[in-house]
Design a protein around this nucleic acid. Sequence first.
DNA 1: GCATAACTGAGGTACGCACCTCAGGGCAAG
DNA 2: CTTGCCCTGAGGTGCGTACCTCAGTTATGC
Lengths: 340, 340
Amino acid sequence: MRPTAKDLAEAAGVSLATVDRVLNDRPNVSKKAVRSVNEAIERIGFIRNPAAVSLARNKSYRFRFVLPRSGDLYLRELSQRVKELKAVLKADLTEVDYVQISVDDAHGVAKYLQGIDEEEIDGVALMAPESPQVRDAVARLLERNIKVVQFLSGQEKLPEADFVGVDNFAAGATAGKLIGRFTCGKPGKVMVVAETMQSMDSIQRRHGFDTKINEQFPYLQCLPSIETHADEARAGQIIPRVLDNNRDIVAIYVLSSEARVPLVAAAAKVDLVNLVVVAHERTPFTQAALCDNRIDAVIAQDPGHAVRSAIRIMRARSDAREPLAAQERIRIEVLLKENL
Amino acid sequence: MRPTAKDLAEAAGVSLATVDRVLNDRPNVSKKAVRSVNEAIERIGFIRNPAAVSLARNKSYRFRFVLPRSGDLYLRELSQRVKELKAVLKADLTEVDYVQISVDDAHGVAKYLQGIDEEEIDGVALMAPESPQVRDAVARLLERNIKVVQFLSGQEKLPEADFVGVDNFAAGATAGKLIGRFTCGKPGKVMVVAETMQSMDSIQRRHGFDTKINEQFPYLQCLPSIETHADEARAGQIIPRVLDNNRDIVAIYVLSSEARVPLVAAAAKVDLVNLVVVAHERTPFTQAALCDNRIDAVIAQDPGHAVRSAIRIMRARSDAREPLAAQERIRIEVLLKENL
DNA sequence: GCATAACTGAGGTACGCACCTCAGGGCAAG
DNA sequence: CTTGCCCTGAGGTGCGTACCTCAGTTATGC
């Protein structure tokens, strides 16, 4: 039979009340009592019954995902995953929702975060770019005991908040490796497209990419990053122009999470099937493009995993538990047509 | 406030006892009562509090992983993951252990399964090759209400039991794609090494591999599968001989889960760095070999995910719930040096 | 040695549900 | 009509923990 708190009290030679005080860090316990209880825990292998804890506390969790307003297909995937989990998690006393705000306006983000009521929200998963204001707002959330997870996006990692997402340097290097090997030693230029090079993710991906290419495939020449600013018209102008001016482009690397706009723009000028194309994130577009060989490989981080992981981490933090690091590492997935 | 069973009784116009009978499928309830309760559930959005259910039932889960006795590094990874989860899951009233038996002896496997006591074990995750005897034994386990998960290994999938693992045809095709693209159009032979071609996984991987190569890289010639039977001495003899007889080998595909033995044998004759090498499963060996370029890519299924998934499925089945299919799909991972 | 603070134990209630008993009502077959 | 069966409600107990009160005990400072 699994030992209960009562057994623990007996084994430690104290009362149930004292056991309770020790287990829940209540004041007015002597060091001696703490010691004897802790020792008894080890000795008899006491483990709190989480179901009973949950029932007695009768506490529920309310988490919010703060996502960018702008965005295309990948963002839709993310919000879709949150919605799906919403239904599932209701059973577990966990309420999840999401909002979309303009993350480019750091001041607005900070203001939004400040407006979050700690009586209503226990944790926030924040997908927003780095800025001093946001850093500050996050720090203040933590002060108010609202757990924060830095979600996918590229703040400089705050040591106080958990991070869910991949190592973007490695992701870029992986893209570089694939482009290098898939181009088979053929010299030429590589077009690199981003939404913006302001964000930490883009910088890190680009850095990993360049490092890999320079080191191992020096006959490939990477062009400066094209920034679309998520503007379809702008992309439709610039990208064909670059393709025109560089007839020896052999590969395209789209390092932003949204590949549709730039690749549709590029397809107006060249047949993507004849180029090596690597993009990020699995979306209906990239998946279809993989299938008909317009894209050769996709570097992805599973949005479902990411959302679940963020929730598990916020829950653990709310319970003052350590999350299981091993389980929460998000993998850099390499998707080919064959392993979709 | 979240509605409780009491609220539900009120809303349905019946007593708590009847609500209980409906919720737990007890006998002696009129169809009318069932209807009005179910309708009230929808109406007020009643959801059982799982913590209270767990506490009241005071039930615990005991699951067993049945793994092969033979095996090298990947098997060690698997058992390691089981051990790790053992400690974590104790908190959740879930006992997990594993045994290793000689899975080649179908009769022995069947006998072992038959000997499992349904009073002691609620679920079995079975990693063993297909055979009529094993199929039969699994069916009898299910009859005794012991949940069964077909774990990673290649039975023909029993429709009654859940399966955790990857699509091995797709895994083989992925390996074929990588070898095809990494060899860059250079004609030559491909050495294919397996432990045995008796098992369903091997057959499917080989089939996927051949299909891909024939379809897209016909200038590559795949040699017949070499079977090592996990015998180091045998591998040390055959593999160098094949390499000697086929000087135009440009790639090696190790389709078994254990890559160490065949690749060490091959390395005695050739420098793996100069060949395209694709293997399966992340182990200390494959990881090190990726790092120093002896292996170009590894096709992997994360053993930690697989173990956790099997446990979640067995738990869901024990609770007569449907597992969440979307979460339990095991990905075919492509590992390069860069995204380890 | 006395006041005060720090500690301890006994006992209770609550959480939401599962599972049990038992009494009584309705209904059909004989 | 009775007998028996199906159905229903009322009420209780227990699961293991959190959290509360209050009386009583032991150290601490002065």
